[in-house]
């Protein structure tokens, strides 16, 4: 039997997380060894919010019946999860070996210069954020840059501004600021 407090907490948690995630968690709990699905659940939460906030992880903890310490511990272990909001468009520069050898560092430098932010940061207008990826498996087309889910192949530093332009970035305006 669940206590009244537990039910109340569960109800609260269900409001915080989007419905598909809540039902996914419920389906996982029907299976044997539900804790094995923790990472998939966190993936789904991050997919929805773009990051994992403390309240999201608390809600996961309540609904999955896994201690918060463990949920945060797991989330912080894996590089894929991040804990601050990301921009509307998430840009990742691959810094895997192939991309590195082919000059991805220079592409990253240009990107940082254009957006005037560092890796892991988001622009003030919340439009763009920069992350570093470790190989997306398109090494033969290095260097590779991702904007949201779209992969750009063989990117040269001089093309970065144009690519950002596709997402509403205005290089001239940004330089004027």
């Amino acid at each position: 039997m669940k206590s009244e407090l537990m039910l109340k907490e569960e109800a609260k948690a269900k409001v915080i997380l989007p419905e598909p995630v809540v039902s996914y968690i419920e389906s996982c709990r029907q299976k044997s060894r539900p804790e094995s699905h923790l990472i998939s659940v966190l993936h789904k939460v991050q997919e929805h919010f773009g990051y994992l906030a403390k309240e999201h992880m608390d809600a996961v903890s309540i609904l999955m019946q896994i201690p918060t310490a463990k949920v945060t511990g797991v989330a912080s272990f894996y590089h894929y999860f991040n804990f601050t909001p990301r921009g509307k468009h998430r840009i990742s520069i691959c810094l895997g070996t192939a991309c590195f050898v082919k000059g991805a560092g220079k592409v990253l430098d240009r990107l940082k210069e254009l957006l005037a932010i560092d890796v892991g940061q988001t622009t003030v207008d919340r439009q763009f954020s920069i992350d570093v990826a470790r190989c997306v498996g398109a090494c033969a087309l290095a260097p590779v840059m991702l904007v949201d889910d779209k992969v750009y192949a063989e990117v040269k530093p001089d093309q970065v501004a144009k690519i950002l332009g596709e997402y509403g970035f205005d290089a001239k305006k940004a330089a004027g600021k």
Binding site: L42, F77, Y78
Partner: peptide, 19 residues
């Protein structure tokens, strides 16, 4: 997985599947 290179190591991978 979730972007941890060490999880390719088999005992770490097992831990990761266990959640």
């Amino acid at each position: 997985g979730a972007g941890a290179f060490v999880c390719g190591e088999e005992t770490a991978l097992i831990r990761s599947i266990e959640g």
